[in-house]
Amino acid sequence: MTRATERKQGFMRSLDPAVLTAFGCIVLLLVLGSFYSRSFLSPEYLLQQLKVASFLGIIATGMMLVVLLGQIDLSVPWTVATGAMMACAAAAYGPLGTTLAIPFGILCGIGIGLFNGVGVAYLRIPSMIVTLATNAVAQGVMVVYTGGFSPQDSATAAMRYLATGALIPGIPNVVFIWALIGAAMVFLLRRTGFGRAVYGIGNRERAAYLSGINTRRIVMTAFAASGGLSAFGGVLLAGYASKAAQSMGDAYLLPAIAAVVLGGTSILGGRGSYLGTVAGVILITLLQSILSVTQMPEAGRQIIYGVVIILMLLLYGRAPASR
């Protein structure tokens, strides 16, 4: 057998049926959409969708890292909002603040993530609870800070450029940023000890610990990364809308989890590929876009959205029969 065919077989093996199904669903959605309107297959529309998907993609990247560990991060909504609000707030402090706006926003997110990580890894509190609580605290801090209204500070030029500009004509910057983050994530998961450890912990933390991995530090780092990525998503969203808003993150928690799970990552951890998450993100974005283009009222959109997620999960997200 030649090396080329061997490699090809390895590649085929690495393709998860779940990932293939997700890509199949994307094609199906596009075909269904094109029956409704020709423009669904136009490059402009697809590029626009990719741009919208990028924000979710960046947030879902962090979520995936945490889900691979067998944990979950429910603090996404207010981490996104905190990142956005703090970046905008920093912009109000003269030229230095403007320069440091983006790092400062991300740093706030990393702080929230670190807090989650310490709670989960060192205090051994279930991640669902810690992250719910930090979400509530972050919300409380932001409500006190903004006085209950959307803050008046607006996004810096750099944030707007990252979110809406195009360095290479035709390719929006956010898509580029998502690609960079995605490449880094793939490298991290497949080529570094950290990535192997993440899968190991997701499969069985006890075994990973016994084989000499500092599991607690890895879990903490993963949560910090998730917080940072959520906040970065928030910074970019603020740049996109040119200001931060109270509930801007609410619309990202469920889609991020759904995208990760629909992409074939096991919610119990230890199994999943980044390609699947990319598929899941695009799938969710397309679904939302098609539902809004057909001018379905909000109620109908929610129902279809929920039903589709359940059906797809029943298709390939089922746990093995337990006996």
């Binding site: 759904a258 109620a299 129902i303 929920g306 997620i309 359940i310 999960l313 997200g317 746990a319």
Partner: peptide
């Protein structure tokens, strides 16, 4: 039924059914 017979994780399954129930509520009272 979804959790037991569909063998989905409760956390994901109820997030999705929650969206459906909210949709129906919105349908009843826009």
């Amino acid at each position: 039924a979804i959790v037991i017979y569909g063998r989905l994780q409760p956390i994901v399954a109820t997030i999705a059914t929650g969206a459906v129930y909210f949709g129906i509520a919105l349908l009843l009272r826009p």
